[in-house]
Simulated assay, not measured.
Amino acid sequence: MMGDKYNTPEEKYEYISKQHGGYYRHDFTDHAYLYNLYFPPKAVFKHLKENIEDLVLNYPMAQDALASLVSKITDQATERIVVGNGAAEIIKILSGHLAKKIIVPVPSFNEYVNAAPKGRAVEFPLEFPSFQLDVDKFSAEALKEGADMAVVVTPNNPTSLVVPKADLIRLAQKLEKQNCMLIVDESFLDFTDNKEQISLEQEIHKYPNMAILKSMSKAFGICGIRIGYMLTANLEFAKAVRNEIHIWNINGFAEEFLRILPQYLSEFKASCEIVKKDRDIFYKNLCAIEGMTVYKPDANYIFCRLPDAALSGPEVTKRLFIKYNIYIKDSGGKTQPDAERYIRIASRTQEENNKLIAALKEVMYE
């Protein structure tokens, strides 16, 4: 017996591929979810353990106090900040409640479209096969569709490509003329080179129709704690989002993590450097696989097109799991041409990345 839900590796794969987490209970190497494996340090866990009784027994803080904790990390005024139970909570509010029509470049993180009521989300295809965003075409399409909200994820998920800052600024200015809010999702920006020059966080005051969204789960390696935030200088928009959040949306563990995080920011920066180093070696090794198209990553995961003679993405993903107990994401189900030819692989430790490459070569062909 392998687990209470499955008896064979095939059944295990069928079960896991329908889940959205809880993977650690099932004993396989997870190259699908996008963690920072080098943060938080042990001291953070020690602190949470030592304070567990208070954290469990007491009500956590509400929005204004939580925003003040995030303001210490972002160096922004509290009234510009909304703290979510993961970025997913804020996405649900933006897509599901506030946008009359939302436009999203695809392929992208599916939740922006999934959270929107039927008929309210427009998918805008990225340039193929470069997967670059043409901001002029995108803003023209937003105008044509009458969108009041546009989303850009940078680096994008699954492509791991950054949208140049100058493009985002031009896009914000174009969209402002048509009363359209631009949501810039910077969840993976900590893994880019020159993050300080690329991030729009410190310039948010210049763009009244822009909001930055950040999932802290990925970069800070705390997927189970669930913290995300939105930042905007448009105080009316911030208020509209805040009004949709219930009074105690963040639990005590998340609150305490935010409270102590400023003490660990230098360790956090160092952890991101290790992630980048591992990823760059991984990228070089993936490029050495004959016939593989590998997109140069700006985040901690790598987007690849399988060689034409290789099996499909879903088939390769399944074989990797059944034969080697390694899980990656294929692009089946994403809105893009030739979706079944693409895979997205999260970078883990160098040792795990090397094992994956050996396994991938083994299962790619009939």
Rank of each mutant, 00 (worst) to 15 (best):
I102Q: 10
D148K: 05
L55S: 06
L94G: 07
I169M: 12
F109L: 13
I302V: 08
C287D: 12
N157W: 07
I103P: 01
E201T: 09
N234L: 07
N179G: 14
Q336E: 14
E244L: 09
T159M: 13
F39G: 04
S68C: 06
L189G: 01
E127N: 12
H97E: 11
T74I: 10
A142H: 03
D280N: 15
E352T: 02
V151P: 03
F28D: 11
G84I: 09
Q178C: 09
F39V: 10
R242V: 01
L175E: 07
M292S: 11
F220K: 00
R120Q: 15
V151A: 11
E315Q: 10
E255A: 13
E141I: 02
V56Q: 12
E79V: 07
C223N: 13
V122G: 01
T232L: 06
A346E: 00
A346F: 02
P40N: 06
N156S: 03
E290N: 10
G252D: 00
A310V: 04
G224K: 06
L200E: 01
I52P: 00
E127W: 07
A88E: 10
A140R: 08
R170Q: 13
E236R: 07
K284F: 03
G332Y: 15
P314M: 12
G96Q: 10
C180S: 10
Y112M: 07
E79A: 13
E236F: 03
D75A: 04
F109P: 07
G291A: 02
R242E: 08
L168Y: 04
A147F: 14
